[in-house]
Amino acid sequence: MRIEKQALLGASTERAWALLLDPVVMAACVPGMASIEVISDTEYLATIKVRISFVSASFRIRTTIVDQRPSVWLRSVGTGEDSALASTLRHDTQIALEPAPEGQTLFRVESDVEVLGRVGAFGLSAMKTKADRLWDAFVEALQSRLAAEAG
C-alpha cells in the first residue's frame, strides 16, 4: 500500500523538523500512539494501537532513520508486529519539508506500507481509508500544537 500525503504547517522548516523528531510531540499527535521509546538518535520503538470497529491491532514498530538532510528530508524504514493477531507491518517512508509562503512549511510524506497476516484480511480498502483518517487526525493535532505555540 502506497501512501502519499502532504500538508501545510504553520512553522519554519527548522521548527517542523524539530517537532517531527520530538518523541514527546509525536506521542501526543500520532493517533493511537501508546508509547514511544528512543533507542538512539536514529532509532525509535513505538507501540501504536489502531481500531477498526470491534477489531483492534497493536503494533510494536521499530523505526530507523537510514538517511537524512536535516530540516529538508529523511528516509526511515521500520518493521513491527502484533503477535496476538499474527500480523506484521513494514514501512519505507520518506519525509520532505519545503519552505512555503508566509513562513509555512510544505510537509510531504511518501510511504510504502506492507501489512501481512490476519490484519491484512481486513482488506486494503479499509486499511487505506483508515490510514487517510489517521493522517488527517495527525495533521490536525500537529497544526493545533503549532497554533498554540504561536499563540
Binding site: 470497529s53 470491534f54 477489531v55 483492534s56 496476538a84 493477531l85 499474527a86 490476519r118 490484519v119 484480511a121 481486513f122
Partner: peptide, 23 residues
Amino acid sequence: GEDTRIMAGGTALILALRQRLVM
C-alpha cells in the same frame, strides 16, 4: 473489560472470530 465483545446477529462478529481478527 476490553476482552469482551457484544454479539447481536453476529453477521460481522462471527466472520472476525473465524478469521481470528478478534479473540
